[in-house]
Design a protein around this nucleic acid. Structure first.
Length: 750
DNA sequence: AGCACGCCGACT
DNA sequence: GTCGGCGTGCTC
């Protein structure tokens, strides 16, 4: 029977079949193949090689060729990819595209040859899209391909370098008549090659014109060479063999990523000594670098350079495919062709960057769980504050492969809760002002977290209280003082602050409430005139070198400042208003706030800073628990969070997925969800499983109305079953979006 | 994702 | 009367 290749393209489609090209060797699953697609050719991943009956081949096209020079993905990795796509109710190609395999981003030489000996219009170029772009050439090519008259190959296009070199078939230039040219020629002959004419002129100490004459005279010429494949070498010493390690912890809570890696180091050393590799995934670049910098001191390590070109990333793949090492990467590392993985480590597991914002919207720790299962290796999760879901993932390891987990101890912060209700000063209350002044007087550092960017959350009329709203979204425009602009933080709309109120015509407009970074920074300068203040948020990132050199100063920022490296003499950390973090209608709000505070604590390194939290609602359980240092209020709080999740079937006790509808007309979005809810219930879903439709926190965004439906399932298969009933679109131009691992209930998808 | 097909509004 | 908007459906 003929052979078929099942190929997955990096497009929102599932795996599809093509007949193997005649005479092709049987490729391993996980190879990259070129297949005809929409009158062109595209590259995809071979997920399956199987026999097909002859009558089936009549319906199928022939695959074009294997793409050469790409290390095939291990079979468990391909199995994981398909399984994970199934779990997220997304076409497998969507997940493949989100993982950014370098083969799909690289340029290829697409060589075409006619089998009947007739001439062909040379080599059809193949650009980034993998579809041959010239439409005049393409129609006949496509027909020839269908007739089986072509032999095609795909080889990687490597960057070419042009060098200047001496022509060996010539005598040297006349030293008497053209001494400059002779001098340049000598320099070139002894150097072998130089990068450019200008380089040679500099090297030989002659003018550019002299070198030009040398080239025109035929004494030197340019040579174009294709750069060779140079896989990077792992950095770091190889551990001695025979290292025995006790079972490592499945989760590590309470420290920085580096501290977690130090805890795992004996295990990793034993893994590599046994000839295995370890995959380590970090959510952000600086975490990746910090982890790799540490690992390199102890073990052979290869890190994925985020700015690497596709060809460099393919060379990197060759390196990780052939030698045992610690592989430090991002999300895309889940399809790195790793040699014999021993375990998978997710750093900073609770970091929100682990949630993919596009494509199948995977949550990396969850995807990592199924990756570890597919590869039969344990999964390790680390974070400064491991939460219930992360913990549950860690505890699913096969018995005996890991210990439960460890909590690292760190210097405790004495949090002071400062009640702002009834306070006269704002946005900084008397308590915070006092400690800021003390910090400045003692020449220490302070970090103050404001709840938002800009100067204020609203710019409003003082007589009729109307705030200027975004024309595209149901949001007030934020006032940015530095730029003197009103900005929408969702759609990017911005405008000049109006002189008069559009509602009542009054000219008394101002930013009077809901302070942001700029406002807080201004007040800090007012109350502590001697302080050197810095701003750190998405809009402005001041140079903090002086602070890292140990000089005093006050940093005012948003949560963007949580990404900073620890500050050397940080003695005050403060949150100007925590209420926004806690009053969010989200069952994860408390754990998220606890983590934010824990990250703040780590910014002081080994120091034990003073912590101040301002609030209008000091009676909130989380705040009272923070100050109850000797009692067990925090334990009680965590137990309450846990039991509430259990009672409502929220993660990790169930799966909470989100279906979002968006449309130009609000009623269309809602009726799509009402129809879906009815359809789900007809199909047997009960009231516990279908929650909603419900309004989104912000109904209108970028001119479209949004609403959502939550689907609560007890297990992955049930979630998948219900989500498979969600259509991609609904009447009225409604776009439907599914988020299986919804992490933020209020988040707007696309 | 791309591409074709198909159905309704403003124009050379 | 056509050009072109985008909503809908398909790709082995």
């Amino acid at each position: 029977m003929p052979t078929a290749w099942t190929v997955l393209l990096p497009l929102p489609v599932g795996p599809l079949d093509w007949v193997a090209p005649p005479g092709a060797l049987e490729p391993p699953v996980g190879s990259v193949a070129a297949v005809p697609w929409q009158r062109g050719v595209r590259l995809g991943l071979i997920t399956h090689v199987h026999e097909v009956p002859v009558d089936r081949t009549l319906q199928l096209n022939e695959a074009v060729a294997l793409a050469e020079g790409i290390p095939p993905l291990p079979e468990p990795t391909v199995a994981w990819l398909l399984d994970e796509a199934w779990r997220t109710a997304a076409p497998a190609g969507t997940l493949l595209a989100a993982l950014h395999h370098p083969a799909f981003g690289a340029d290829w030489h697409h060589h075409i040859e006619r089998l009947d000996g007739q001439p062909l219009s040379a080599t059809a170029p193949s650009g980034q899209s993998q579809t041959t772009p010239d439409p005049d050439d393409e129609a006949p090519l496509h027909e020839l391909r269908e007739q089986g008259l072509l032999r095609e190959t795909f080889t990687l296009k490597r960057p070419q370098t042009t060098v200047l070199t001496a022509s060996t078939d010539r005598d040297p230039p006349d030293v008497r008549r053209t001494p400059g040219q002779y001098q340049a020629w000598q320099a070139l002959t002894s150097a072998g090659t130089v990068a450019s004419a200008a380089e040679l002129a500099r090297l030989a100490g002659v003018t550019a014109g002299t070198v030009r004459s040398l080239i025109q005279g035929g004494y030197a010429h340019y040579e174009t060479t294709t750069s060779k494949s140079v896989p990077p070498q792992p950095v770091g010493p190889m551990p001695p063999q025979g290292q025995a390690a006790e079972p490592p912890p499945a989760w590590i809570s309470g420290g920085t990523p580096e501290q977690a890696i130090k805890r795992l180091l004996p295990t990793l050393q034993a893994d590599l000594a046994d000839g295995h590799s370890v995959l380590i995934i970090a959510p952000e670049r600086h975490t990746m670098d910090a982890a790799a910098d540490l690992l390199e001191q102890h073990l052979p390590t290869l890190r994925q350079m985020p700015q690497a070109t596709p060809v460099e990333r393919i060379d990197w793949q060759h390196a990780v495919a052939t030698q045992p090492c610690c592989v430090v990467t991002g999300f895309g590392g889940l399809i790195a062709p790793i040699k014999q993985p021993a375990r998978l480590v997710i750093l900073d597991a609770e970091n929100e960057t682990h949630k993919q914002r596009s494509g199948p919207r995977t949550w990396t720790p969850q995807a990592a769980r199924s990756w570890a299962d597919a590869h039969h290796v344990p999964l390790h999760l680390t974070d400064v504050e491991v939460g219930p879901e992360t913990l549950a993932l860690a505890l699913e390891n096969p018995p005996g492969t890991t210990q439960q987990g460890v909590r690292l101890t760190r210097p405790t912060v004495r949090w002071v809760i400062s009640d702002l209700s009834g306070a006269r000063a704002w946005p900084l209350g008397a308590d915070l002002v006092r400690v800021i002044r003390q910090t400045v007087e003692r020449e220490r550092q302070a970090l103050i977290i404001a709840p938002r960017r800009g100067y204020a959350a609203a710019y409003e009329c003082e007589s009729c209280r109307t705030a200027i709203a975004c024309p595209n979204c149901d949001l007030t425009l934020r006032y940015h003082a530095r730029e003197r602009r009103l900005k929408c933080h969702q759609c990017g709309h911005h405008e000049a602050p109006p002189a008069t109120c559009p509602q009542c015509g009054s000219d008394a407009l101002d930013a009077t409430r809901a302070a942001g970074v700029e406002w807080v920074a201004r007040v800090v300068r007012d109350v502590a005139p001697g302080a050197v203040t810095y701003r750190y948020d998405t809009d402005v990132k001041d140079d903090l070198t002086a602070l890292y050199d140990g000089h005093p100063g006050v940093v005012v920022g948003t949560t963007a400042a949580l990404r900073l490296a620890p500050l050397p003499v940080l003695s005050l950390i403060a949150v100007t208003q925590i209420d926004g973090m806690l009053h969010v209608d989200d069952f994860r709000a408390e754990m998220r706030a606890l983590r934010t505070l824990a990250v703040l604590e780590t910014l002081a390194g080994d120091r034990r800073p003073l912590g101040v939290i301002q609030t209008f609602t000091p009676e909130l359980p989380l705040l009272t628990a923070l100050t109850d240092r000797d009692g067990d209020a925090m334990t009680t709080l965590r137990a309450a969070i846990e039991s509430r999740r259990q009672r409502f079937g929220y993660p990790p006790y169930g799966i909470l997925s989100r279906v979002q509808a968006s449309a130009k007309r609000e009623a269309d979005a809602w009726s799509a969800l009402t129809d879906l809810a009815a359809q789900l219930k007809t199909a047997g879903a009960n009231d516990d499983e279908v929650l909603g439709p419900a309004p989104m926190p912000v109904a209108r965004l970028r001119g479209r109305y949004h609403a959502h439906l939550l689907i609560r399932a007890s297990e992955a298969a049930r979630a998948r079953e219900l989500l498979s009933m969600v259509p991609a679109t609904a009447p009225g131009g409604v776009r439907m979006r599914v988020d299986v691992d919804a992490r933020d209930i209020g988040e707007v998808l696309d």
